[in-house]
Structure formats: C-alpha cells, structure tokens
C-alpha cells in the first residue's frame, strides 16, 4: 500500500496537467489560491477588529459570537450556501461555487485570528500599558507601538492555526466540483483509487506543514527577541559584564516552531 502511494506520487504524469486532467501542480496552485484568498480576507477583517476590541475592551461579545460560528459544520454550510448562491450565476463560470467556498473558509479562519488578537492585546502587562500612557503616548500610539508588538506572538499563533484549518478544509472545494488538492481525495474515493486518495491527503498535510514552517520563520523575524525570550537571562543577578551576542542566542535556540 505504502509502495503504491509512493509510486503514485513519484509518477511524473500525475504532476503535470494535460488537456483533460489537472495535475498535482495545478491543483496545488488552486488549493493555495482558495486558501490564500480566504486567509487574506479573514486577516483584513479579524486583525483590525481584534486590535480594536482588545485595545478598547468594547464589544467583546463579538469574540464569543465568532467562536460560536466555529460550531457550524463546514460541509453542511457549504452545501447550503451553494444552494442559495450558485443559482445566481449562469454559464461557464465557477463563481457560484467559489464564493460559498471562500465564505466557509473565511468563517473558519476568523475566530482563531480574532480571539488570539484580542487576547494578545488584553494580555499586555498592565504596568507596561500604564507606562506607555504615562510617557505621553496617544491611544493609537499605545496600540501600535506597544500593544501590537507585544501581542504578536499570540496573533501569529492565531493566524497559524487559522492557516492549518483553512488548508485542511479547502479540500471541500472539490466537493462542489472545484479544484484543489481535495480533487485527488474525492476522485480517489469515487474511483476506489486509494493510492490517489491517500496521496491527496498526504499532499494536504505536507502543504500545511510547509506553510506553518514558513510562518514560524516569519514570526521569528518579526517578533521582538525581547518577547520571545530568545535571549540569555543567565546574568540576571549582575554578572553584567559579558556582552550579549545576538547570534549565539539564535544559534542555541531549538528550531522547533512553537505549537500553535
């Protein structure tokens, strides 16, 4: 079985597209496109909203409401939306399916980005926020210069878990005739071609992993070392003469991305 999966994946004809059939590369592109659109929309909505809620402590019910949406079954919602939306589009266009898919994915991504952003901002040490105002920062300055940088680790972990969920769930696009890596899973299932089906699953998992790794890398270079603690604390009590070497701190840290 494992050998079958391996030979399915290593067959170059499965990777290239033909006139009749979209190959792995093509479906990967489609999968990424659906996912990226959903993640960008979710980020554009949830990040500013989360920052605002966290900063002002107003309308916190929105977070609970967004989390409640998580309980909706994705496939069921997708079918419902297709039934409602698809009839409005005629002809040789797949817009009637793309819109419902994106809505489902966006709704999936928003809660973790939103709640993590709110939590990140709210968790900023009171003394730190107090000092920021005390130094004469205005509200927006406190938000963008102090609260946001300190909330970044949580914001990132929210975005990373949203990414994992969206990549995994984007397979349902294929359930409503669209492309993406889900194609191999549904086709494999339909044709009882299990190597193809398992390969599709493996490809989704690999894609999610790679993206998470890339985001971890991005996180490392955007989050201040003062927050990640990727610094040496060895000399708290005063052996203050040893000069800090930023490189050694990076080199000694383990490479595992923090769990989302």
């Amino acid at each position: 079985m494992i050998g079958d999966v391996f030979s399915w994946l290593s067959d170059p004809t499965h990777w290239q597209s033909t006139n009749f059939d979209t190959g792995i590369w093509g479906q990967l592109g489609a999968h990424l496109r659906y996912s990226a659109i959903a993640l960008v929309i979710a980020l554009v909505i949830a990040l500013p909203l989360g920052l605002w809620i966290g900063h002002t402590n107003k309308a916190t019910w929105i977070v609970s409401a967004a989390n409640a949406i998580r309980a909706l079954p994705s496939v069921g919602l997708l079918v419902l939306l297709v039934v409602i939306i698809a009839p409005h589009f005629y002809g040789r266009t797949d817009t009637g399916y793309v819109i419902p898919t994106e809505i489902v994915l966006v709704l999936l991504a928003i809660p973790s980005i939103l709640s993590n952003t709110v939590a990140g901002v709210q968790n900023v040490d009171r003394a730190v926020r107090d000092a920021a105002y005390g130094m004469g920062m205005t509200g927006p300055q406190v938000l963008f210069r102090v609260e946001t940088p300190n909330a970044l680790p949580l914001i990132f972990s929210g975005f990373r878990s949203a990414t994992l969920q969206v990549i995994a769930t984007a397979t349902i696009a294929s359930y409503v005739t669209l492309g993406g890596l889900g194609r191999f899973i549904y086709d494999g299932l339909a044709q009882q071609d299990y190597p193809q089906m398992i390969s599709g699953g493996l490809l989704v998992a690999a894609l999610a992993l790679i993206l998470d790794l890339l985001l971890a890398l991005l996180q490392r270079y955007t989050v201040s070392r003062g927050i990640t603690g990727r610094t040496r604390r060895s000399d708290r009590a005063g052996h203050s003469d040893e000069a800090p070497d930023p490189r050694s701190a990076v080199l000694t840290e383990d490479l595992a991305p923090e769990a989302a």
Partner: peptide
C-alpha cells in the same frame, strides 16, 4: 499626552517595554 511628555514618570515595577531594547526604552519620549 502633551502634558505627560513634559513630565518624567517612574513607576513601581519599572514598566519597561519588553519588546524594545534598553536604549530604545530610554529614548521613548
């Protein structure tokens, strides 16, 4: 905020900005 920029303020637990280096913390105002 303009008033506060003219008044130095030291709080009990220092309240330094964890994401900024020491030199940038000092240069806040």
């Amino acid at each position: 905020h303009e008033l506060r920029r003219q008044i130095g303020y030291v709080i009990q637990h220092a309240g330094l900005f964890p994401h900024r280096t020491i030199v940038d913390n000092i240069a806040t105002v």
